[in-house]
Amino acid sequence: MLLLAIDTSTTAITVGLHDGASVVAEATTLDARAHAEHLAPNIRAALASAGAEPGDVTDVVVGIGPGPFTGLRVGIVTGRTFAFALGLPVRGLASLDALAHEAWLEGRRGDLLVATDARRKEVYAATYSLGDERACRVGEPVVSRAADLPDEVRGLPTAGRGPTLYADVLPDAVGPRDVSGGVLADLAARRLRESPAGPADELQLVDPGHGFDGLEPLYLRRPDAAPAPPSKKSTLG
């Protein structure tokens, strides 16, 4: 098995490779503005450092957010297309799960809030219960002003960039700030081991902590419905 994991939901443009036993390569670039530039070269670099070819990949997993839309789509379309080109299964995982999983891998147990930068003075957030077996998401991810999260939630140890951006309302910063492709690959490999027969393209966020999350991006916001400035469009070709 060679599992390729991709995530572009945070500032990290990150790729991980897992051979079924362990993470064998990771390539990450921190650049919130250039997802499309860095992602494919990072995949190439990760493959090279693992001594593998694209054709050696057996599974593709993409972080489906939530995350800022433009960057998020780069990862998802890359994963979908790469898998399509090679005839591979492609699965999605909620990106916030990877942050919770990293905190779990670092030994943290108990309740955890994951809050990432949603721009517009908001965070993408989900709470997790970190047990001995795994980190389990408690409910669906939301987009919210950090200050509007319930008091008991804001008081939790918090991973992601949320606490860095809103230290006044998210005081307990812990764990990773951005998604790691290697950690996402590790999480995906574990979930594959648990439910190897699970469908490759479920469409719903189901059974947090188990299985996969479908391939649709978690936008959590409707599009702004303003037409493009005329100089930027070409409606008639």
């Binding site: 997802h35 499309a36 992602l39 494919a40 995949i43 190439r44 694209p54 433009t70 789509r73 780069v74 379309v77 890359t78 994963g79 979908r80 297309t81 790469f82 080109a85 090679l86």
Partner: peptide, 14 residues
């Protein structure tokens, strides 16, 4: 970005 990312994934995979 969507088209370019997809094209790169094709080019890389193939």
């Amino acid at each position: 970005l969507v088209g370019v990312a997809s094209a790169k994934a094709l080019a890389l995979a193939l």
